[in-house]
Simulated scan of single mutants.
Amino acid sequence: MLRKLVITRPLAQSLGLAQVLRDGGREVVILPLLDILPLPDEAALQAVLAQLESFALVAFVSPNAIDAAFAQVATWPVSVPLAVMGEGSRRALARHGVTAGPYQITSPLDTQRTDSQTLLQALDLPRLQGQRVLIIRGDGGRELLADAMRDAGIDVQQVAAYRRVAPRLDAALRQRLTDLLAQDCDWIITSSEALQVLMGFVQQVDAETGVGKIQHKNVFVPHRRIAETAVSLGFRYVFLTGSGDEGLLTALQSRP
């Protein structure tokens, strides 16, 4: 019997995957552990996007960064190369009409580890030395990419395009978590931050036995960094999938 799947991605990113899984006969629960919200003030984002052609490269840290930026940009200049972390971001660019061929898009070669470090390996950092690079990210994102580029002599500017907020742990969410902890579910986790939120919620809902329950669930993650976070939090059954929905679906099919 196929186990129920819990998708913890933000709602907008969960709907398409949930439908594909349901069409394949899986029972799915959407339980967003992070909400993606616009910035209270988008003036800084709008100002920097008005100067796109002054940058030798624009790097996006996530599909959310792409969607937030393209909400402010009518047409992306073909002369401005882009860099993304993985296949999910490539698909996000494609939704906005930006694809390889007309546009130069760089992404990690290792689809099993799509993060800042592998993106840095794919970039021609010497060519960018002394030039301006823009990193578009969420509010309060990691500094690894920017720091490494600065160390390589690149003039880096960062701008936030959205913010991530954990949902409020109200009575309804408490009950949903309690019910899911008692069931034989597999969990899809696509960010380390969401994993931390989940553990925090479980500790509040059922600190005595809930943590042990969640640590024994199957957890499917798309990146090694998330897998490492899961292991550090005591999860025993962590399955690393390929990048993007295709990798996730393949992994789920091999472990029904």
Rank of each mutant, 00 (worst) to 15 (best):
D151A: 15
D151I: 09
D151R: 15
D151Y: 11
A152V: 05
A152C: 12
A152T: 08
A152W: 07
A152K: 10
A152G: 09
I154Q: 01
I154P: 05
I154C: 07
I154A: 04
I154S: 03
I154G: 06
D155P: 07
D155L: 09
D155K: 13
D155S: 05
D155M: 08
V156R: 02
V156M: 11
V156Q: 01
Q157C: 08
Q157W: 03
Q157R: 11
Q157Y: 06
Q157E: 11
Q157T: 02
Q158E: 02
V159K: 07
V159I: 07
V159Y: 05
V159C: 12
V159M: 05
A160H: 00
A160Q: 05
A161D: 03
A161F: 00
A161G: 07
A161E: 07
A161Y: 00
A161V: 00
A161C: 04
Y162N: 07
Y162H: 10
Y162L: 10
R163A: 02
R163V: 06
R163E: 00
R164N: 06
R164S: 04
R164F: 04
R164Y: 00
V165I: 15
V165R: 13
V165Q: 14
V165K: 12
V165A: 02
V165P: 04
V165G: 10
V165L: 12
A166K: 15
A166R: 10
A166C: 09
P167A: 13
P167E: 09
P167L: 12
P167G: 05
P167T: 15
R168N: 12
R168C: 11
L169R: 13
L169S: 08
L169Y: 11
L169E: 05
L169M: 10
L169F: 12
L169Q: 09
D170I: 12
D170P: 12
D170H: 14
D170S: 13
D170K: 14
A171C: 05
A171D: 14
A171T: 04
A171Q: 11
A172R: 14
A172C: 12
A172K: 07
A172T: 13
A172S: 15
L173M: 10
L173D: 05
L173H: 04
L173A: 12
R174H: 11
R174L: 09
R174Q: 13
R174M: 13
R174C: 13
Q175V: 02
R176A: 14
R176I: 08
R176P: 06
R176D: 10
R176V: 07
L177P: 00
L177T: 02
L177N: 03
L177D: 01
T178C: 02
T178D: 09
T178R: 11
T178P: 00
D179T: 13
L180Y: 03
L180S: 06
L180V: 13
L180N: 03
L180W: 03
L180E: 08
L180M: 10
L180A: 08
L181M: 08
A182N: 03
A182V: 06
Q183T: 07
Q183H: 06
Q183N: 06
Q183F: 02
D184P: 01
D184E: 14
D184V: 01
C185N: 11
C185L: 09
C185R: 01
D186K: 12
D186L: 03
D186N: 06
D186G: 13
W187H: 09
W187P: 07
I188R: 00
I188L: 15
I188H: 01
